[in-house]
Design a protein around this nucleic acid. Structure first.
Length: 281
DNA sequence: CCGTTCCTGGAT
DNA sequence: ATCCAGGAACGG
């Protein structure tokens, strides 16, 4: 489940390996992944050089010469792998970009949930949800005051669903949402606008902390996630809420429980995560 | 705003 | 054999 820290780790792991490389062949084996163009368009990347890789939320954008760009969203099980051309192709490899260094950039995605967009950088931002994303939680000019002001606009919506809404804040998924809420002591069902300002600020700093620690630890590898070189992260060993159902809370010893919030499983401590509500008792 | 859907592999 | 994981598009 690649979220912001995992996607950023993939970006960093690929960056120096790919910058300046020329694409000498491009094959899209499963065309439905490419949402706004054809496999012939994909093949036409041949001859271009890779200029940069940037990230916004959980989206990666590869910038090529010739004013071309490719947006890749890994969704649940997508992997971008830099592999030697003679390495056996993994099952569920859906695109291959041959490079002029004897390697290939391969996209592997068992569940085929991934999304690709191809075109000019302006086009791919418009065709994907890139341009509709909320602020980057780690951006230096995004402040606690900005965050609490946005939070207040969430009104009676459950904070968990709000954190997962990419239009509000970019890059947060189920794991880091649960971790941030645990860190801040906020129940996932809490109403956004009922969260006291000081607690909202704490949530902001907690969110940043778990995302930064996630990046420092090169991501959370629970099921499928690996970086561009196939290496696992280690943040799964530092999780305090996500996936700890039935285990003792590190703060109070109470058992962590899991319940559905907005259709998604949510792990939290029933004792030290406070439920803030707009409803009058 | 919420629920449903996409898809496969792993757990039960 | 059935259920579940869940990011985001889509429909209501």
């Amino acid at each position: 489940m690649p979220e912001l820290p995992e996607v950023e780790t993939v970006r960093r792991s690929l960056l120096t390996l790919l910058i300046g490389k020329e694409i000498v062949g491009a094959d899209l084996g499963y065309p439905p992944l490419l949402k706004n163009a054809t496999s012939a368009d994909f093949a036409a990347l041949t001859g271009q050089r890779i200029l940069n890789i940037i990230r916004r939320g959980k989206y990666l954008m590869f910038l090529f010469s010739g004013d071309k760009a490719l947006i890749v969203h890994l969704r649940m099980t997508g992997q971008l792998r830099y592999e030697a051309a003679n390495e056996p192709m993994m099952k569920h490899t859906h695109f291959v970009m041959e490079l002029n260094d004897g390697h290939e950039l391969r996209f592997v995605d068992p569940r085929k949930f991934g999304m690709l967009y191809l075109g000019s950088s302006g086009q791919v931002m418009a065709d994907s949800a890139w341009s509709k994303l909320g602020p980057e939680p780690l951006a230096q000019d995004f402040t606690a005051a900005d965050f609490t002001a946005l939070l207040a606009q969430g009104k009676a919506r459950a904070i968990k669903g709000w954190l997962l809404d990419q239009h509000k804040i970019a890059g947060v998924g189920n794991i880091y949402a649960d971790e941030a809420l645990f860190c801040a002591g906020v129940n996932p069902l809490s109403h956004c606008s009922a969260i006291p300002e000081a607690v909202g600020e704490k949530l902001f700093y907690c969110l940043r902390e778990v995302l930064e620690k996630g990046i420092e630890n090169r991501g959370t590898s629970l099921n499928d996630y690996v970086d561009g070189l196939g290496q696992q992260g280690s943040f799964q060993f530092q999780l305090k809420a996500y996936g700890r159902e039935g285990e003792a809370c590190y703060n109070c010893g109470e058992k962590i429980i899991r319940e559905k919030v907005g259709g998604r499983s949510s792990s939290h401590c029933p004792s030290c995560q406070v439920f803030y509500t707009n409803d009058k008792a």
